[in-house]
Structures are given as structure tokens and as C-alpha cells.
Amino acid sequence: MRKEKYITKILIVTILIISLATFESLIKAKSIELFEIFSKKTGKGMGEYINFLMFNYIIDILEPLIISLFLVFTRKKLRMNGLIKFVLSAMVLSKLVFKISKFEIYSLFFYFGILLYILLFYFILKIPNFSEGENEL
């Protein structure tokens, strides 16, 4: 049971990240002001604006989705070692740097997203390395 708490914490944070990205995309899709700014800068219509938002949404949820699916499907068979922790934490750290480089300081989603990615990074680093005798997380 102790081993499952690490997976549960990571899954909760990834669900929160995906939910946050969903709400952000929904609010941006319903905003006429953001569409007008997009239309003035690019000269494109509503279809391209929705495509742009959907592409950004997929980019936002890709890493948490990969991490959660990986941990759910491999938790019984795979031993957690330093290499797996390094790869997962590098994915999260690169996404965190990408999110910070967007620099959307007027959005609450920006700050909550950064906080959730820092939590996810922390929880991945805190997963204990399991020995040869222990096959599950």
C-alpha cells in the first residue's frame, strides 16, 4: 500500500494539470476578445483560431498523459530506477521551462500550471528506487 501512494499522488497531479488545460482552452475558445486579437495579428478566421487552440491544448496535455499512462500500465512489471526517474523528471522539467517561457503573467492558469508542474517534478523525484525483489511501485 505504501508503494501505491506515490503513483496516486502523481496521477492526481496529472489529472489536475489536464483539467486545468481543459478549462484554459475552454475559456480561450469562448473569448471574443482573444479571437479578435488573433484575427488582427494573423488575418485568420474562427476555424483557424479553434485549430490553434486545439493544437495548444494537445501540446499542454501530452506530457502528463504520457507519464500517467506509463505509470499506470507499467507499475506492476517495471522496477523504478534512476534512469526512469531521470527521463520522467526531464520531461516534466522541459515542459515547465516551456510553460514559463510562454510568460502569460496575466493568467491564473499560468501560475497554477507552474505550481502543478513543480509538484509533479517533486513527486517524481520522491519515488523511491525499488530493489530487485520488489516488482511494483
Results as ranks from 00 to 15, higher is better:
L116I: 07
E132A: 12
A90T: 13
Y106D: 15
G45N: 13
L96H: 06
G133E: 12
E48M: 06
K95Q: 14
S89Q: 11
Y117L: 15
T14F: 00
N56E: 15
R2D: 13
K44N: 14
M54Q: 05
I127M: 15
R2F: 12
A29M: 09
I66N: 00
Y111P: 01
I84H: 04
I84K: 05
I124R: 00
S19P: 00
L120F: 09
L62V: 02
V97M: 09
I12D: 09
K3C: 08
L34V: 02
F86K: 13
K28E: 14
K30W: 10
K5D: 14
N129S: 11
E132P: 01
Y117K: 01
L93K: 06
L115W: 08
L20A: 10
K5N: 07
R2H: 11
T14P: 01
F52Y: 14
I105C: 06
G43T: 03
I50M: 12
Y106G: 11
F121G: 12
Y6M: 05
L34N: 12
S107R: 12
F52W: 03
Y111V: 04
L71Q: 02
K9C: 08
A21M: 08
F35G: 06
T22L: 09
S68C: 09
I32G: 01
I7N: 07
D60F: 01
L120Y: 03
L20E: 13
K126A: 12
G133T: 06
Y117R: 04
E134H: 07
I37F: 06
G43H: 02
K85N: 05
F73Q: 08
N51P: 01
M54F: 09
S94T: 10
K41P: 00
L125S: 02
I58N: 13
F98E: 13
I67L: 05
R75Q: 08
S25K: 08
K28W: 08
L137G: 00
K77D: 11
M54I: 12
A21G: 03
I17W: 03
D60T: 00
S131W: 01
K40G: 06
P128K: 09
G45Q: 03
I100P: 00
K95V: 03
E24R: 11
N135A: 12
K95T: 10
L34P: 00
E4S: 14
F110I: 02
L83C: 03
I118S: 11
F112H: 00
I84T: 12
L62H: 05
E136I: 08
L65Q: 07
S94W: 00
L53D: 05
T42I: 02
K85I: 11
E4G: 03
L78Q: 09
N56S: 14
I18T: 14
S19V: 04
